[in-house]
Nucleic acid binder design. Structure first.
Length: 383
DNA sequence: GATCCGTGGGC
DNA sequence: TGCCCAAGGAT
């Protein structure tokens, strides 16, 4: 069922949207978008900025700390498509364990992947390490401050390069993420769907950005997007730039940004095998590229419909089914267990049963929990 | 440009 | 419950 959306002036019988009417009159009087909105936003940000461990307070000079850009970069990579709440404990754990980019560059690959486990998008972890090592090898252990040099490093795209330049070095970079896109498409009522609208977004921000305040300007837009200009039911009455917002004047600011329709996620099925012997279970390292690349996992078949051939013949016990949604498909993973007296000759790493769930991606952590819960039930029933 | 790549939370 | 969303990047 389609969502019901108020359509502003034309869609209502009792008809007159006085708020919108007044806004349009004001707009016609003063111009389509006021020149003062960037400073209104900075004023609002000065009073309402979130306090975050990787963020400089509004209006303050950057910390006199050679590792500041490192922490900014680390936070930005963790925050790619990831919420502040999910990333924060990982940020603290990483900075405590690896306080400098040189320390991170020197770490063991498997330790890094285990530390990243659960955060998702594991290519970020592989690129994180490659980037740290490139900074040490090519830049003497100091991040470059220029966007172009940052953009050339692994795992750093347009957004992250601009964010590190602005937040880490105080450069005048145009920082555009999904939050900024939402605010600006509403502000301008851009009807063109993403990603086509990005050129207009960048042009508007390059014009509007107050010189010397790029970092506060971008983070102000992000805080506004999270607290006021939310995806659904934006709180326009609390917005410092509502008076100049064309999206609000349409009566349906939540309709922006316009996005292309999404495809349905296909269903896939697969099987994973728990092989236990001598208090240990067999894990395997997945190939470096592709889904869950480089991560430890339970042995499993591929999930594209091929027959599930277990790595050993034997008396496999059914443990149940784990359902897990990925970005572009949904998986029903059947879990089967085989317990042996002695460890068989198989490729992989044997780990203690009690610690098997730690350091695994969430899908396999769920599968391990399923097996352990099954074992507890058996123990209860036997006792 | 289109597709692939995790996860957890909100409504 | 199912769908949308979150400080994107690589291929």
């Amino acid at each position: 069922m389609a969502r019901v959306r108020p359509r502003g002036i034309s869609g209502r019988f009792s008809g007159v949207d006085w708020e919108g009417f007044l806004a349009i009159r004001l707009s016609c009087h003063s111009g389509a978008v006021s020149d003062s909105w960037p400073h209104d936003l900075l004023d609002w940000y000065g009073a309402h900025a979130r306090v975050l461990p990787w963020r400089n307070p509004p209006g303050a000079a950057l910390p006199d700390d050679p590792d500041w850009p490192y922490r900014v970069w680390l936070s930005e990579v963790m925050l790619q498509q990831t919420t502040v709440e999910a990333a924060t404990p990982y940020f603290h754990a990483f900075t405590a364990r690896w306080p400098t980019v040189a320390a991170l560059a020197a770490c063991d690959d498997d330790d890094l992947m285990q530390a990243w486990a659960g955060l998702g998008y594991y290519a970020r972890a592989r690129n994180l390490l490659a980037c740290a090592r490139a900074v040490v090898a090519q830049h003497g252990g100091r991040f470059p401050g220029e966007e172009a040099a940052l953009r050339a490093l692994p795992g750093i795209g347009d957004y992250t390069a601009a964010a590190v330049a602005a937040f880490g070095f105080g450069r005048d970079a145009v920082v555009i993420d999904g939050n900024v896109e939402r605010v600006v498409t509403r502000l301008l009522a851009l009807a063109e769907p993403l990603p086509g609208a990005r050129g207009a977004i960048r042009a508007a921000l390059a014009t509007a950005m107050p010189a010397g305040r790029a970092g506060d300007f971008a983070q102000g837009l992000m805080d506004l997007a999270r607290r006021v200009c939310t995806p659904r039911a934006p709180r326009c009455l609390a917005c410092p730039i509502a008076a100049t917002c064309a999206g609000r004047q349409t009566g349906a600011p939540e309709d922006f940004p316009v996005k292309p329709a999404k495809k349905a996620r296909p269903q896939r099925q697969g099987t994973a095998w728990w092989i236990e012997a001598e208090g240990q279970v067999l894990l395997v390292r997945r190939p470096a590229k592709g889904l869950l690349g480089g991560m430890l996992a339970l042995p499993s078949c591929d999930w594209r419909g091929q027959a599930a051939v277990p790595p050993l013949s034997g008396d496999w016990q059914a443990m149940g089914v784990v359902r897990h949604g990925f970005t572009h498909f949904e998986l029903a993973l059947t879990v089967k267990a085989l317990r042996l007296a002695a460890r068989p000759e198989l490729d992989g790493e044997w780990v203690a049963v009690g610690s098997a769930a730690t350091g695994l991606p969430t899908l396999f952590a769920k599968a391990v929990q399923l097996v352990l819960a099954h074992a507890r039930d058996d123990g209860t029933n036997a006792a």
